[in-house]
Simulated assay, not measured.
Amino acid sequence: MDNTDLRILTVLQRSGRISNAELADKVSLSASACHRRVQRLEGEGFVKDYVALLDARKMGRPTTVFVEITLSGQADEVLEAFEKAVARVPDVLECHLIAGQYDYLLKVVARDSEDFAQIHRRHLARLPGVAQMHSSFALRTVFKTTALPV
């Protein structure tokens, strides 16, 4: 991994649909050398995937809720059952096992507070091993990125 690879990754994170010719120009490489490097970076797993980032508001899901979950225990089977079940909830965008006051932090999207109440009732309250849940509604997203520092 050299500086050219880092420049390629920086550009790809912000413009995943950029053509190889444009990318090569931005990082000062020939198109063929750039293509080889991108293929290597993909093959080595530095680039996991290319996705379209949708606008949650335009998709009718403008409400973001962070849900802190405490489980009834820490046994492997409790953690595994919870993780397997939460992965099937379509409104949960992220699930993180965390250290601290809670066991998991979820990022959930909803149409509004009433929709979240339905998601809570139908899905979250039925997750296995949950002892406590605390929900916090985001009032406004101040900053959001998917780009890692390179």
Rank of each mutant, 00 (worst) to 15 (best):
L6M: 12
R7D: 12
I8W: 00
I8L: 06
I8A: 05
I8F: 04
I8D: 00
I8G: 02
I8T: 05
L9G: 05
V11A: 09
V11M: 07
V11W: 07
L12S: 10
L12G: 07
L12Q: 00
Q13M: 09
Q13E: 10
R14H: 10
R14Y: 05
R14K: 12
S15V: 01
S15A: 12
S15N: 13
S15I: 01
G16D: 01
R17H: 08
I18Y: 09
I18P: 03
S19R: 07
S19K: 09
S19G: 14
S19N: 02
S19I: 03
N20E: 05
N20L: 12
A21E: 10
A21G: 04
A21K: 13
A21L: 12
E22P: 00
L23Q: 08
L23K: 11
A24Y: 10
D25C: 05
D25G: 07
K26V: 02
K26C: 03
K26T: 08
K26H: 05
K26E: 14
V27M: 05
V27Q: 06
V27G: 02
S28P: 01
S28W: 07
S28M: 12
L29W: 09
L29C: 15
L29Q: 14
S30V: 03
A31F: 04
S32T: 15
S32V: 13
S32Y: 06
S32I: 12
A33S: 15
A33C: 06
A33I: 09
A33D: 13
A33H: 13
C34M: 11
C34V: 10
C34F: 07
H35Y: 14
H35Q: 12
H35M: 11
R36I: 08
R36T: 11
R36P: 00
R36K: 15
R37C: 04
R37W: 08
R37H: 01
R37N: 08
R37T: 08
V38W: 08
V38T: 01
R40K: 14
R40P: 00
R40M: 06
R40T: 05
E42P: 02
E42G: 03
G43R: 08
G43V: 11
E44W: 00
E44T: 13
E44L: 06
G45R: 06
G45P: 06
F46P: 01
F46D: 02
F46S: 10
F46A: 10
F46Q: 11
F46H: 15
V47E: 05
V47F: 07
V47N: 04
K48R: 11
K48Y: 07
K48I: 06
D49A: 15
D49G: 04
D49S: 10
Y50H: 15
Y50A: 09
V51R: 15
V51S: 12
V51Y: 14
A52C: 08
A52M: 13
L53P: 00
L54R: 12
D55I: 01
D55Y: 01
A56S: 10
A56T: 06
A56R: 03
A56I: 11
R57W: 04
R57Q: 15
R57P: 00
R57H: 12
R57G: 04
K58D: 09
K58M: 07
K58T: 09
M59H: 09
G60F: 02
G60I: 06
G60P: 07
G60D: 08
R61L: 11
R61D: 02
P62N: 11
P62M: 11
T63G: 00
T63S: 08
T64G: 02
